[in-house]
């Protein structure tokens, strides 16, 4: 059991091309690794305040999202601590309002995660569609590795899955669709 508790949260909309990159990184992590207790790796979609109860008790939050960096498509960015507060005051992520409100409400409720890191990538396009653009698709693996680096820094080394993915309780998980 890892203590303090960690939440790795991918945010975005899977049916809006590059917007969904954060969720794709999460799906890839869930398929390829098993994480020790105390580490939650979650597809947060675009749920905003509905994610509030998952933050309760989390000490370290790692967010993966599409981020407006001002650079070319595929540009990676890592933000932590005060950089995040500054970034939130300017236009940053398509989900900024949801994420920012979520964190402020968590703070008001007295359980904002003390430590927070955001790994992001500059989207190429955001419109209806289920494929990532090539520049962003090429960075999914870098983001997966980036998450593993952050987790290692927090003392977490995941293992390879011992059962094939998709054999849990819920049969019709249509992973192949994505």
């Amino acid at each position: 059991m890892i203590d303090p508790a960690i939440l790795v949260l991918g945010i975005g909309n899977l049916v809006m091309t590059d917007d969904g990159v954060g969720v794709r990184v999460i799906l890839s992590l869930q398929d390829r690794y098993r994480f020790p207790g105390g580490v939650t790796v979650m597809d947060g979609g675009t749920l905003g305040l509905d994610l509030l109860h998952y933050l309760d008790g989390v000490q370290r939050l790692l967010v993966v999202d599409a981020v407006e960096t001002g650079g070319v498509a595929g540009t990676l960015v890592r933000l932590a601590g005060e950089e995040l507060n500054i970034a939130f005051r300017t236009k940053l992520s398509p989900h900024q309002m949801g994420l920012q409100d979520l964190l402020l409400v968590a703070e008001l409720q007295g359980f904002a995660p003390p430590e927070m890191v955001l790994l992001g990538v500059q989207p190429g396009e955001i419109e209806m569609g289920i494929e990532l653009t090539p520049a962003v698709a090429d960075q999914v693996e870098s983001l997966v590795q980036g998450v593993l680096v952050e987790l290692a820094r927090w003392g977490v080394i995941p293992t390879a899955p011992d059962t094939p993915p998709g054999r849990e309780e819920s049969p019709p998980v249509h992973r192949r669709l994505w």
Binding site: G45, T46, L47
Partner: peptide, 14 residues
């Protein structure tokens, strides 16, 4: 499979 896509229509009302 349609419902699996439509639940992502909207992030709020899955």
């Amino acid at each position: 499979d349609a419902w699996y896509f439509t639940q992502r229509f909207c992030g709020v009302c899955t």
